[in-house]
Simulated scan of single mutants.
Amino acid sequence: MEKVGRKYIQVSFGGFQTYKYYKDSLEQVSDYAADFYLYLSKQEILDEQEISNLVSEIRSKFDRWGSVNLTLDQLRRISKIISE
């Protein structure tokens, strides 16, 4: 970390370019799409990867035409979880 201000955090990667992030949301300050994301811990990255994998797995079960290979009991449990 290079510098912490009241509103922004500045981070340098490898001493080359400095990037600025909003202190409260950790979003990159940019007029364009973010180049990098800032995380406070490695666990946050692992959690985000697990969420992405689980969502892909769930979508693959339901994102198709025809029948779903799940039992009525499995569908009821999924429905109950989704409606929470």
Rank of each mutant, 00 (worst) to 15 (best):
A33R: 11
S30K: 11
I51V: 07
K42I: 12
T71Y: 01
S41T: 15
D31G: 08
T71R: 00
E84P: 06
I78Q: 04
L70T: 10
Q10T: 14
R77Q: 11
S12I: 12
K3D: 15
K23F: 03
K20I: 10
S52T: 11
F16R: 06
F36Y: 09
K3T: 13
R6K: 09
R6V: 09
D31L: 07
Y21V: 05
D47P: 00
M1S: 08
W65C: 01
G14E: 07
Y39R: 02
R59T: 05
Q43H: 04
R6C: 01
V4Q: 10
V4T: 10
E2A: 08
I45V: 12
S52Q: 11
Y37Q: 11
D73A: 12
R6W: 10
L75M: 14
F62M: 07
V29N: 05
G15N: 03
G66K: 08
T71L: 02
Y22Q: 08
S79V: 08
E57H: 03
N53Y: 09
S56A: 13
K20V: 13
Y32W: 15
S79W: 09
L38V: 04
K3S: 15
D31H: 04
A34P: 14
Q17W: 09
Y21N: 02
I45M: 04
Q74I: 00
S30C: 07
D31E: 13
G15F: 03
L54H: 04
I58W: 00
R6L: 11
K61H: 00
Y19V: 05
D63R: 13
K3M: 12
V55W: 00
Q10H: 08
S41W: 07
S25H: 06
K61G: 00
F16K: 07
T18K: 09
E44A: 11
T71H: 00
